[in-house]
């Protein structure tokens, strides 16, 4: 049930993101009216501080935000889980080197790390993706390595090795299936951390280049209104929350299926 809800939400988001230009009533950066106009027929969700249509910004925001979050999370998982599993499977100095590198990267506060990298190289989208990917991948690495460690010491892995199976076979056939569950659970959360990280970056004046709309920055730009009981910032924040909940419902469902428990509702 909740899985279906999750899938439905993700589907709607994807349609909105893909067909944004056809769905949005106005352009992403079109300046139409006065600042903070109220909700009306003309502007269903009012206007933002520069007089741009809030609804259109939200719709285009879906495109930028989801695209960015999805690509970063997938890249981070590819990088992090692969290196994590290799480290666990090979052990020895490979494990040491990879683990120390990750330790070093993780011991630097992530905002400071991002501040350093983005201030040195600039805040263009590729650098933004690369920076957040690296930061996220270190977290994935740790989890993948820790869980894979538990699997590697199992007898069946031992047997496979004695049998002379290659590294990639061990990883694909023995380790990966057994650590999918925690990795999946992590995926659901990492996904929304990307939005949060982007909005935290805008706290330091870094982040997406204007006038592109993204939900993280939209929350940041309007956040001050909430203490005056104006719900405008809840719109982008709610959009992020709904997507997060939906993605995690799907993850839970997959988790349940893969765990082999029979009491799936």
């Amino acid at each position: 049930m909740s899985a279906k809800f999750g899938i439905l939400v993700v589907l709607i988001y994807s349609i909105v993101a893909i067909f944004a230009p056809f769905i949005a009533p106005y352009g992403e950066r079109e300046i139409l009216g006065r600042s903070f106009e109220l909700w009306s027929d003309k502007y269903p969700l009012g206007t933002d501080n520069l007089g741009r249509d809030m609804l259109s910004r939200m719709i285009f925001g879906a495109r930028n935000t989801i695209g960015l979050a999805l690509s970063i999370t997938i890249l981070a998982f590819l990088l992090g889980s692969l290196t994590g599993m290799i480290a666990a499977a090979l052990g020895g100095w490979v494990d040491q080197i990879l683990s120390r590198i990750v330790d070093v990267l993780m011991s630097i506060p992530s905002l400071i790390f991002a501040l350093l990298i983005l201030s040195i190289f600039g805040t263009s989208v590729p650098y933004l993706i690369a920076t957040i990917t690296v930061i996220d991948a270190t977290r994935v690495f740790r989890l993948a390595r820790a869980t894979a460690m538990n699997v590697v010491v199992m007898d069946y892995v031992e047997v496979a090795r004695v049998r002379g199976e290659k590294l990639d076979w061990v990883i694909r056939k023995e380790i990966l299936p057994n650590i999918t569950a925690p990795l999946l659970a992590e995926f659901g959360l990492r996904f929304c951390f990307v939005f949060l990280f982007i909005s935290a970056l805008s706290f330091l004046g870094l982040g997406l280049q204007p006038p592109s709309a993204d939900w993280g920055s939209m929350v940041r730009d309007n956040a001050s209104l909430i203490t005056f009981e104006d719900i405008t910032p809840l719109l982008p924040a709610g959009a992020i929350a709904l997507l997060t909940v939906a993605v995690n419902f799907i993850v839970d469902w997959l988790l349940h299926k893969s765990s082999g428990l029979k009491d799936v509702s």
Partner: peptide
């Protein structure tokens, strides 16, 4: 799940403001 997920999908400063 829904409550905790919602709370973490809000940026920290926003949770703080609320």
């Amino acid at each position: 799940n829904t409550f905790t997920l919602t709370s973490i999908s809000f940026p920290e400063f926003f949770v703080a403001y609320i």
